[in-house]
Design a protein around this nucleic acid. Structure first.
Lengths: 339, 339
DNA sequence: GTGAAAGCGCTAACAT
DNA sequence: ATGTTAGCGCTTTCAC
């Protein structure tokens, strides 16, 4: 019960293996009578070509590797869908790997993908330093960094504007009449944490609002920290009338805190979050958020990768920055706003 | 700038390729002096073994394929994490594929995975008939079906008890004092839709409650249907005091409807949903749900697969059914329940 | 302990 | 239009 090989097909169809190969790969130049015979043999044996063998001689696998840091964060699946769909169109197969935010696992995965000879790699790294990409770069395997930058190598990159998004969010709050605006920012040593804070400050500056230190809270991008920062904000003598949370988990934590302490969303306090939440519409009142086009991010990433994989010369590296979009729902304007 | 091969290493270390192979594969029986030389050559060239070539000879890839129907449904990533983690422990690499609930894509994916010679397949199928698995079965590639059964072939299967979960949910409602209990069930021709209804009926019967036809609504597992069914329930002359929704999306729809029509959760109506929601705790009052241990499901699936992959004989096929767990929060007891 | 060589299944010259 | 064959990079007997 050995798997049938091209040879078995050849013998059954009474042709050479080369002919079978030509039929399988639709290269044409085969008498239709012969082709028919071959096709029949293929069916009869339920022959499935061995991609490993093919890849060995062709020196390409038509496979790309995708490494994401957290498959349980709802953004990444969206990103992956975008990549996969685009890849499928061009006949590429996607191997998805999850590093779990662990640089060690990420390095291993890179090794394994390299061993498996992927034609290209799309990565949202767990370690922006990027030295783990050394072997990839060395072998001149096309890479594109998505959503997070690689610092020490020059690679194609596609990001969503953090500064821009935070700026828009904050401006929206300002335009709704808020002046006492708080931010729950992320760790300032991370790029997104830092950049989103920059956008926040920029908007305030532009509208001549002063940055009130009391209104600047720093979380760690996790739910619990959003929860705690919100409570602290509430305890202030003069609490803010609006909060900008720097990521989805902290928004969630903030929401929990609001509910718990009875700080009424949309009446006593406005809220805008960075990154959408699947239940944002369901919150009462529906939550306004900065939404990142993850799917398009994925599409763009693959397109970039594809360009690299198919061009011979060394293309100059590109950096794309997509614009986030603000989804205005109802959590920012207060029913009875303090002016 | 060709990729270095085992031959390059052999030449540089002044040994045969066989020796290099032995070193790479840690087979021992090499003089440590020699081994050192080889290791140095490997580093110097940054040699990475070619898994394709190895797999060709060994006739195994140490790779398993995983096909899930919807990467954007939060359950599946959890399932995948379970599989991956377990696989990693045993030295297997996971290729994750997303069929998008399309039987056609699923068939293609199976073909592609077969071409790539995966050692085993774990699948949550988009087509319970299962004929698409024919080629897999034929080649005696180990398969395990997870979360959804395969009808026309006998394969290892691991599921979560639908009847059991629905039964527990309903019983919980009954024990909270509810007698007028509605169900928003799924399509009765789908296994989960049907089984969850069975569990519902069983609980009623056991507590001598009659099934009131007016309280049986049928949705299609999508949000909108949960929304609509809830509204219908509300319009009844004698609305139920509790609702059991048969899946997460319909729970979400139900929740939206409740909010919209002002049917107050936890006061006027109790709710228990099948499947957890990431924001269930955040709902006011927090939502009680039937939760499926997706992660364990994944672990069990891989264990089963592993057993098949490593045993020589044809093992009898197994069916595991894991128990769901009911996460009691606060949406089922009414503050002022009508008795 | 180490090497020589066959061969995994396929493709792509090169022949015919 | 089709066949012959070298060789992709590796592992694994079988020798020595």
């Amino acid at each position: 019960m050995r798997k049938p090989t091209i040879k078995d097909v050849a013998i059954l169809a009474n042709v050479s293996t080369a002919t079978v190969s030509r039929v399988v790969n639709r290269q044409g130049g085969i008498k239709s009578k012969t082709e028919e015979r071959v096709q029949k043999a293929i069916e009869q044996l339920s022959y499935i070509p061995n991609a490993l063998a093919r890849s060995m001689v062709r020196k390409q696998t038509n496979t790309i590797g995708v490494i994401i840091p957290d498959i349980n964060n709802p953004f990444f699946p969206l990103l992956v869908s975008g990549i996969e769909q685009q890849a499928r169109k061009k006949g590429y197969f996607t191997i998805l790997c999850n590093s779990n935010e662990s640089p060690e696992i990420e390095s291993e995965l890179i090794q394994v993908l390299l061993e498996r000879s992927v034609d290209g790699l799309i990565i949202t790294t767990a370690d922006e330093g990027g030295y783990q990409l050394q072997p990839v770069i060395e072998r001149m395997i096309p890479v594109v960094a998505v959503d997070r930058q690689i610092k020490n190598f020059e690679v194609d990159t596609v990001l969503v504007g953090n500064v821009d998004g935070a700026y828009q969010a904050t401006r929206h709050l300002i335009l709704q009449g808020h002046t006492k605006i708080a931010i729950i920012r992320g760790p300032q040593k991370t790029t997104p944490g830092y950049e989103r804070f920059v956008g926040f400050q920029r908007a305030l500056a532009e509208y001549n609002l002063e940055l009130d230190e009391r209104y600047v809270m720093e979380g760690d991008f996790r739910e619990q920290s959003g929860y705690e920062c919100t409570k602290k904000l509430f305890k202030l003598n003069e609490p803010p009338t609006a909060i900008f949370t720097s990521n989805n988990l902290m928004t969630l934590g903030c929401l929990k805190a609001l509910t718990e302490i009875g700080w009424i969303l949309g009446e006593q306090v406005g809220l805008i979050g960075f990154d959408d939440l699947d239940f944002a519409e369901f919150v009462n009142p529906p939550l306004t958020v900065v939404s990142r086009p993850m799917r398009q991010l994925g599409e763009a990433a693959f397109d970039l990768l594809y360009a690299q994989m198919t061009s011979q010369e060394d293309r100059p590296k590109r950096h794309y920055v997509l614009s986030p979009e603000i989804k205005i729902r109802q959590s920012c304007s207060l029913k009875s706003p303090k002016q």
